[in-house]
Design a protein around this nucleic acid. Structure first.
Lengths: 108, 108
DNA sequence: CAGATATATAAGCAATTGCTTATATGATTG
DNA sequence: CAATCATATAAGCAATTGCTTATATATCTG
C-alpha cells in the first residue's frame, strides 16, 4: 500500500526537470556512477548529489557502493505510488472517456 | 506529442496534496461547481480558485459556465503527458524488472 | 602516511509556492 | 438599479526549493 505522502514525494521529485533528467539517464544507462551523471549535466556536482539524494529518499533509485564510486540504478518499485494512484482512478476514468491502456497505446 | 514542459506542469500541479485532493474530488464527483469544492475544503475560497486555475492551466480540468456557477470536470487528455512519459520508458523498465501492466495488477 | 579522487554536507541566497485577507468582477434576483 | 451570490484577482508573507561556493568525509594509490 502506498500513502498519499509517498505519492506526493514521488511527484515532487519527478516534477523538477533537472532531477527528472538525472532519473531518465539512470533509466537509460542502467547503472551509472554519480561521476558519470555529473559529466554532461548542466549543474554542479553538489547539485547532482542533492538530486540523487532526493531520488533515493523518494525510493526512485537504489545505490551500490563500489570502492569510491557509488553506482545508481532505478529502484523497481519506486514508481509504484504513481502507478497505484493512476490505477486507483482508472475505473473512474474508464467510465468517462477511455482506459489507461488505451491512452497508453494512443500515445506519441 | 507532449513536451517536457507539459509533463513538468502536470507533475508540479499534482504534487501539491491540497490541489491533488481538489482534482480527486472532481474525478469522483464527475462535475462540480467551485462552490462545492470550497465546501469541505480545508482552505479558503481564493485558495481553491487558485488551485482550479493551476489545474486548468495544466490541462487537467475543463470548465463549463452555467449562470454564476462554473462547473469543473476532468479533462480527458490532461493526464496524457504523464501516461506518455510512463509509456515511453515502459520498454526500459520491462527489460529490467517488470512491465507497467504487471505493476498495475500488483498494486494495492 | 600524503595526495588524489568520488561523493556528501553546510551555508547562503534568489526564486517559487501556497496560503491568507481584502477587494474586484460577473451574473442573478427582487 | 441595489443587493446578493459565485468566482477571480491583488498584495503580502512565511516556507520551500534548487542552485551556488566552500568544505568535509571516505576510499584508493603510491
Amino acid at each position: 500500500m502506498t500513502t498519499a505522502m509517498q505519492l506526493t514525494n514521488v511527484l515532487k521529485t519527478l516534477a523538477d526537470p533537472t532531477r527528472r533528467a538525472v532519473f531518465e539517464r539512470i533509466i537509460r544507462e542502467g547503472e551509472v556512477a554519480a561521476t558519470g551523471l555529473v559529466q554532461g549535466s548542466k549543474v554542479s556536482q553538489p547539485a547532482v548529489s542533492q538530486h540523487l539524494r532526493a531520488l533515493r529518499d523518494a525510493g526512485l533509485v537504489a545505490e551500490r557502493r563500489e570502492g569510491r564510486h557509488i553506482h545508481y540504478r532505478v529502484a523497481p518499485k519506486g514508481l509504484s505510488p504513481l502507478i497505484d494512484w493512476l490505477g486507483h482512478y482508472e475505473t473512474f476514468w474508464a467510465e468517462r472517456f477511455a482506459n489507461l491502456e488505451k491512452l497508453l497505446k494512443e500515445s506519441e
